[in-house]
Lab assay of single mutants.
Amino acid sequence: HHHHHGSGALAALHAEGPLAGLPVTRSDARVLIFNEWEERKKSDPWLRLDMSDKAIFRRYPHLR
């Protein structure tokens, strides 16, 4: 159930192989992290948004 927010940013994801479903670039990863943060913020208003490279690598090590 993907609803768009204002920016309408869509992340490019790997379609197949071992990385299927994972973001292709760091900016794609940022979109995913932001979208998930927006969702989680509803139940956790104090949740901090962390889109640093460090956060991205921790989450998606293949982007190193």
Rank of each mutant, 00 (worst) to 15 (best):
S52R: 06
G21M: 04
P23K: 00
L19P: 02
R59N: 05
L13F: 06
P18E: 08
A55R: 05
M51Y: 07
A55T: 08
D28G: 05
H3F: 14
R64F: 10
R48N: 07
G6P: 14
T25W: 04
A11G: 06
L32K: 03
G21E: 03
S27C: 13
F34Q: 06
S27K: 14
L22S: 03
P23S: 01
H5M: 14
H3K: 09
S7V: 12
S27G: 13
R26W: 11
A11I: 09
D44I: 06
K42N: 08
S52I: 01
A11C: 05
A29L: 00
L63C: 01
R30D: 03
A15Y: 09
S27W: 15
E16A: 08
E16H: 10
V24K: 11
H1L: 14
V31K: 11
L10Y: 08
H3N: 09
G17I: 02
H4L: 11
R58Q: 14
R58I: 10
A11S: 05
D44W: 09
S27R: 15
D53A: 07
H4A: 12
K54C: 11
S27A: 14
A29C: 01
A55W: 04
H1D: 11
I56P: 00
E36A: 06
L32C: 07
R58D: 12
H14D: 02
K42Q: 11
K54Y: 11
L47E: 07
F34Y: 14
S43T: 15
H3C: 13
P45R: 08
W37R: 01
S7Q: 12
D53C: 08
A20P: 02
A55S: 06
D50T: 03
R30V: 06
H62S: 02
H3D: 10
D50G: 02
H14N: 04
L32N: 02
R59V: 08
D28W: 03
V31M: 14
P61T: 02
H2D: 11
H62E: 01
A15D: 12
A11H: 05
P23F: 00
L10D: 13
H14M: 03
G17Y: 03
L49H: 02
E38V: 15
L19M: 07
E38S: 13
A15I: 13
A11M: 05
D28N: 02
R26Y: 11
P61Q: 03
V31A: 09
L49M: 05
R40T: 06
E36D: 08
M51L: 14
L19H: 08
P45S: 07
A12G: 08
R64Q: 10
S43H: 12
F34S: 04
H62W: 02
P18S: 07
L32W: 03
V24I: 12
A15C: 10
G21V: 03
S52N: 03
L63N: 00
Y60T: 00
M51E: 02
G8I: 11
P61N: 02
H14K: 02
H2V: 14
P61W: 05
F34P: 00
S27P: 05
M51S: 05
T25N: 06
L49K: 02
F34A: 05
P23I: 01
H4W: 14
F57E: 09
R58S: 11
L13Y: 04
A20M: 12
E36N: 04
R58N: 13
L22K: 06
L22F: 05
H5K: 12
L63V: 01
R48Y: 07
A20S: 08
R64N: 09
R59L: 09
G21K: 03
A11T: 05
L22E: 05
K42H: 08
V31S: 07
K41C: 08
R48S: 08
L63M: 02
T25L: 04
K42C: 07
L47F: 15
D28M: 04
W46M: 14
S52K: 06
A20E: 09
W46H: 10
H3M: 09
A11Y: 06
I33A: 02
G6S: 13
R40P: 01
E16M: 08
R30C: 11
H2G: 11
A15V: 13
I33Q: 02
L10H: 14
E36V: 04
A20T: 09
R58M: 13
A20N: 07
S7H: 15
A12M: 15
A55F: 12
L19V: 03
A9T: 15
R40Q: 11
W46K: 13
P45Q: 09
V31H: 11
M51D: 06
F34R: 09
L49V: 06
L13E: 04
D44V: 05
H62Q: 01
G17P: 06
N35Y: 12
R59H: 05
W37T: 01
H14A: 03
R30K: 09
K42T: 07
A9Y: 14
S43N: 13
L22W: 04
L63A: 00
G6T: 14
P23C: 01
V24T: 04
R59F: 05
L49T: 03
L49C: 06
L32P: 00
H4I: 11
P18T: 06
R40A: 13
K54N: 13
P23H: 00
D44H: 09
A12D: 10
L47S: 11
P18F: 05
M51R: 04
N35G: 07
L10T: 15
A15G: 12
R26P: 10
R58C: 08
F57T: 07
H3Q: 09
H2F: 13
